[in-house]
Write a protein that binds this DNA or RNA. Structure first.
Lengths: 209, 209
DNA sequence: CATATTTTTTACCATTTGGTAAAGACACGA
DNA sequence: TCGTGTCTTTACCAAATGGTAAAAAATATG
């Protein structure tokens, strides 16, 4: 049972588990959990289906392994907001990191998006345990900044929602974006400029309190 | 073949087709195209599977019928932007209508979201034909307003993207929103206030041109 | 080299799923 | 009441899909 082995994975095990997860990320992000089949994952990874089941207990185990492994990387940019720093540049930095993640890891973004849209049936506990505290902490920091008069009055929770909504939109709804704004090579630069510009305006506007 | 019959559907046909489509909207929006099964749709509509296939040619036909029927309603709020009106209130009105649609029709929103995330395999032609021209027309109107100095300089295409991203986020990622901002009865009011406030700020900010 | 262990393949299986054929049940006008 | 067309059910089916058993192949270890 290499899957649950506590330690010591052989080279082959590591390489093959990695290949499987990479193929699975492709397939799951493209078709969703139920839309993905073990045969597709097998084909994409260049391995046979039973061989895949030698490394993972089943389809769901692959999905869970993927989500768990990605969760930490995915949350990383949220961990870096520093209450001591300058509010505007801290938040704009966060926006930029999230945009960069959408650009560099669209598969990961869509994997999560698929899961969430369908009600997060397999991920809700993870969200509660890992995401929620981080979210709350960041909201608290932003609220402090607002209370200190260093940011205009706005709703921290919904501000973060907005950042997620806008940054992830470019990865998750890429098919739509491609139809509406085709071709552009500098598409990502323009998107970046728009999004950061938008939040800069928002964060530096005079509070009509 | 009631499915392709040009005219004259009996009462029963109309009622049953409607029941099927409503059940299918439930199931497709919850599980995506491949995740949904005819048996689920049958159960949800209180009809037998073969009876469903008496009204529709197959699973895909139901999905297509749903998407086609919804497309027009879904695009409606985009049609109403008036070049003669006041730019800020026209755009904010659009934002509010989209927020209201997310609140009132989350199933429809998620049906589209599922389709788009997975690459719009069945809807891309519709997007090209129906959505793209509307999108372009609205971008042109906004560009005119900007050229006339009635709006700050910003990218019309990405502005519309932003509106979609933020408004739809509340419907499509509801599971996540629920985890992070649980309970609130006035949740929608706060979301509404935040989103409209955000775009108002953006649209009325002094251009640092 | 011989043995023990890990990895991969071949050949299956049970269930689910989209779909069909054909017989009934039902509605309704003559 | 009978017949005709509409609607619904029962009983299936072939393909796809997640998964297993066990043998064969490869790899490590003494």
């Amino acid at each position: 049972m290499p899957d649950t082995a506590p330690r010591k994975m052989s080279r082959i095990q590591q390489r093959n588990r990695h290949r499987i997860l990479d193929a699975a990320l492709d397939v799951f992000s493209k078709h969703g959990y139920r839309g993905a089949t073990l045969d597709q994952i097998a084909a994409a990874s260049g391995m046979s289906k039973p061989n895949i089941l030698y490394y993972f207990e089943g389809k769901e185990a692959i999905h869970v392994a993927l989500l768990s492994a990605l969760m930490s990387e995915w949350l990383a940019p949220l961990e870096t907001m520093d209450a001591q720093g300058d509010p505007v540049s801290e938040i704009l930095g966060y926006v930029e990191r999230k945009m960069e993640m959408s650009r560099a890891y669209p598969r990961e973004s869509r994997l999560f998006a698929n899961e969430i849209i369908q009600g997060a049936p397999r991920m809700k506990p993870h969200l509660e345990r890992d995401l929620k505290p981080l979210f709350d902490a960041n909201c608290a920091v932003i609220q402090e900044w607002i209370d200190a008069g260093r940011l205009p009055t706005l709703d921290p929770q919904h501000l973060i929602m907005s950042i997620w909504a806008m940054t992830q939109h470019y990865a998750d709804f890429e098919a739509q974006v491609q139809v509406l704004m085709p071709g552009d090579d500098d598409s990502w630069d323009r998107a970046n400029a728009h999004v950061t510009g938008m939040f800069r305006t928002l964060l530096t506007s005079n509070t009509a309190d």
